[in-house]
Nucleic acid binder design. Sequence first.
DNA 1: TTCCAATATGTTTGCGCAAACATATACTTC
DNA 2: GAAGTATATGTTTGCGCAAACATATTGGAA
Lengths: 310, 310
Amino acid sequence: MTVSRVLRDKGYVSKNVTEKVLKAAEEIGYVRNNLAGSFAEQSTNLIGVVIPSLSNSVFTEVLSGFEDVIHESSLQIAISVSHYDQQREFNLVKDMLAWRPAGIVLTGMEHDERTRNLLKQNNVNTIELIDVDGQPISKCVGLSHRSAAEAMASHLIENGHTRFGYVGSALQVDERAKKRKIAFEQKLADNGLKIERTALSPEPSSMLLGRQLTAEILQDNCQPIALYYSNDDMAAGGLLHCTSQGISIPKDVAIASFNGLEFLDAMPMRITTFKSPRYEIGQIAGRYMLGEIDDRITQLSGELLIGDTT
Amino acid sequence: MTVSRVLRDKGYVSKNVTEKVLKAAEEIGYVRNNLAGSFAEQSTNLIGVVIPSLSNSVFTEVLSGFEDVIHESSLQIAISVSHYDQQREFNLVKDMLAWRPAGIVLTGMEHDERTRNLLKQNNVNTIELIDVDGQPISKCVGLSHRSAAEAMASHLIENGHTRFGYVGSALQVDERAKKRKIAFEQKLADNGLKIERTALSPEPSSMLLGRQLTAEILQDNCQPIALYYSNDDMAAGGLLHCTSQGISIPKDVAIASFNGLEFLDAMPMRITTFKSPRYEIGQIAGRYMLGEIDDRITQLSGELLIGDTT
DNA sequence: TTCCAATATGTTTGCGCAAACATATACTTC
DNA sequence: GAAGTATATGTTTGCGCAAACATATTGGAA
């Protein structure tokens, strides 16, 4: 117990003994056994985080904000990847709960029913990220993708665009992108307009894919048309296709997108997009985890960034 | 014990009892306590992975290969981020060791001396990724960044380039980029050549930064010049700068890079780069972890991809 | 000197699980 | 039906740590 007291700097121990213990611990390379320690304490400092993908910087930027807040505390983050698979997410959550984590962080509002039950039943501190359109398991922080898509539709309509196309990827797994597409279509419908052309791919989004699908959607010269993309990667690819083909932007083809990632600043034109407050979402999730916020839902607003492509 | 036998599917239990146990477990939402279980078994199925950054797809692609292999086993991956900080890496490794993981995966060969000692002393199964130029703590898999840079230098020299510039970022923390720059310079020196201009930034690499630094290095019209970039993001930014400025490539400015990331395919020109076998590195690391490989070092070769920019 | 508090160390206990070691019951084979 | 084997269940134990509860020892204040 004296050794335990020294190593945890807790309770009374004489200077003399403290020094000897620390020296000995150093010498034998003592490393606390968390399995035993956390087991005895009946709690851990682990936060389990499940994100859909590591290759989409949206999630890593959110994580970055989360980490910056959590790093100041004694909590530890352990990240796992679900590959946009709710079944896999369920298994990861189950495995994580077995470690009795201090909290669980999930992405999006759509999960396997068993995942929701598991977390509710075990009364785990759960934060859902990025989306707020739905009923959170416990707490959530994000933006309304519905509103974001509606704002973009309104912007395009106001700017006089009348013909619309949609270019998207991985809609069968990306629930947020799906919500945006539906809301965008709905807003058009409210104004008596519709998406005339659609280019979709099940592949993960990328600039190359955006370029290919844009080439595809434009191949029968349907210009002028305003293209709404599932995200910035796709839109940037579209932009590169158009500039290389000498297509006039925004006269013949308008480009609108979602996310407002930093890499857009390197593109030849400023793409109109909707900036999602990713870092901030992560920060707030961190503050949720530290018990600094009580609200069930924190809805952030994001910002319509009007560039030169609409 | 009968319950334990049912849940682990181990030993003899009657059909009757098995069913009753499973039903009850389901009803009360039983979740095994890994803290107790792993503690009793004196081992865990956790693999601690430390990568420098989540926003560099090099690391996430390696992770992807690693995950695909590990996912088939019963092992679990827990990822943490060091932010290119060896001190932080040390703390993460220390925290991970407290969980008695089945293995530790680190990035690169350069670590705090205490990290090396800790891992050696505790005899932990350690794999170092991406680099092989150095002495691994235990095992490593990667490519020789020195050779990659030398190959690129040779290629440029053979193609008749005689004036050279270097555009790089975050060299104070990115040990691999640093090694490439040094090897590139050395190879030039071996041929009586040198880097005449350098544009550096401490910021993390990005297309935008590449664009800015390229503008900077070219501002006093030093063409013709062959620019070696610290990586593809930077080079892509450089390319976008040159095309938007109407600079002739490769006549006035040649562009050479490292990594061979997929997004280059969306660029207006095929950039000459050196493809690092990222996914494969991850896969092999996974097979190391599963005990399928014994070699101390696995050196992969990579490939010089000659594009239109040299 | 006496007494009480502050300081310092020691002892017992339980966390939940599974290995190891019983013991009990059913099912063959002769 | 005896003997042996396969199947099924039960009991004890310890993993390393820290909470809870002793028990010393020291240092002042009265």
